[in-house]
Design a protein around this nucleic acid. Structure first.
Lengths: 235, 235
DNA sequence: GGCACGGAGATTGCATACACTTTCTTAGCG
DNA sequence: CGCTAAGAAAGTGTATGCAATCTCCGTGCC
């Protein structure tokens, strides 16, 4: 289909493959349990099997695909237990980030956080889910960076990306947007007054709430059933 | 040198490479910043470049090596900040594991933890560092498993393995063995009485103490200087 | 009728070959 | 004498080919 490369962003071929395949998994085009045949993928993207293999290795390390020796790769199948433990971890990690942020953010970082957060209030009033989602992602990223701990940052980002496939829907529900903003507000004010414990607790609760909503929805079971593509969650 | 394969444990060739190269990094044979030339490694282990490349990919994902596009791979250079953040993360993660363990361990797990912990007291009296180290590792692993959270388990094990190269020395110092056991004791008793918060705090402190001792030692700087091979820490 | 065995097809794993990028060297110029 | 630039050498990135393994289906035996 897509003839040449360079439809995708630049970078080495394997990076493009990682993004391409990863996106398809995250967006649900490739569904859990689906077989990932090297030759087919190579043909599909018009490259040889070598970069495909390497990309599958990366994706396997990211936890998006599962590799059985001599038996090929499949899109990672996530059990309900594992999913729950990932959300749980996410809550803990966000709690840590918020706590550290409260203790360590520079004056500039605090100001930026506050300003952006207040600006997003307008989006809530307008009910602009898409735009709010963008701010939401940025908001959480600020917390991760604000923790000033590279390894915590890595763990958190990694976990978030592994959860991405399941952070859909549950959005556009009742007043989720407003609730989300209020929860953010509690985190922000705790950070601004330097109360690490309160910030951590608020962030943990915030994620936990999202988790429950998502988890209930995400998979009644592990059906071949369609996971329809829906907008990403407003955590 | 080593003629055929199968000098190492079985598994695919790339797994052997991952173990072989990883061990050399962890044990300090390959030092931080050292160039990892694919051709040389391939010749050294008598395989082609393909599995070497894949192994380097895995090691890169594990954080043991660093890969620059078109510029080869080097043994990961860890800055003092990054090292500190890893120890910090480790403390948080162990705290989480201990807290969860206190809340979730089965009766059998609690019993086993208690028994093994008491048994290790004998090793402390004898001053058997090597044997105590084994029990110590097992003790911590019990905490990780006892959390009953696969993802927390993964994050913790991953972080521990990345810290492995730096968890040497600081051992055989004064009464570290005794102190370690007492700290373990605080964790165990908190878990046994189901006090998650206390268990978490105790575990966090325990790791933090180790961290400080190790960090001070680990690298005065990032010198080409020898990181002599020494026994692993008694965390 | 069910189960074990065996062979063909398909697919992964590894090796080799080629192309492109980087880097070191060296020659030319200011 | 120093600096720039061109070219060669080294090394990574990708493609292709071959060997080994697994899957699957059909046949024979119990």
């Amino acid at each position: 289909m897509s003839g040449k490369r360079s439809l995708l962003r630049s970078g080495t071929t394997v990076d493009q493959m990682v993004r391409a395949i990863g996106d398809r998994i995250v967006t649900g085009v490739l569904r859990p349990g689906e077989k990932l045949d090297e030759a087919s993928l190579a043909a599909r993207f018009d490259v040889s099997r070598t970069p495909v293999r390497e990309a599958l290795g990366h994706l396997s390390a990211m936890g998006l695909v599962e590799r059985r020796p001599n038996r090929g790769a499949i899109v990672a199948v996530v059990t309900q237990e594992h999913l729950a433990s990932m959300f749980e971890s996410m809550a803990e990690l966000e709690g840590i980030c918020a706590r550290f942020s409260a203790e360590r953010m520079s004056a500039g970082e605090r100001r930026a956080l506050e300003i952006e957060h207040q600006a997003s209030a307008r989006l809530v009033r307008l009910g602009a889910e898409e735009d709010y989602e963008y701010f939401n992602t940025e908001f959480h990223s600020r917390l991760y960076r604000g923790a000033h701990s590279t390894h915590v940052f890595e763990l958190t980002v990694m976990t978030r990306s592994r959860l991405a496939p399941f952070r859909r829907a549950q959005f556009r529900l009742d007043g989720r947007l407003t609730k989300s903003w209020k929860e953010h507000d509690a985190i922000v004010s705790a950070i601004l007054r330097g109360d690490g414990v309160a910030a951590g607790a608020a962030a943990k609760d915030h994620v936990s709430i999202v988790s429950e909503a998502s988890a209930v929805f995400a998979l009644g079971e592990q059906p071949k059933g369609t996971i329809t593509t829906m907008p990403v969650i407003a955590s």
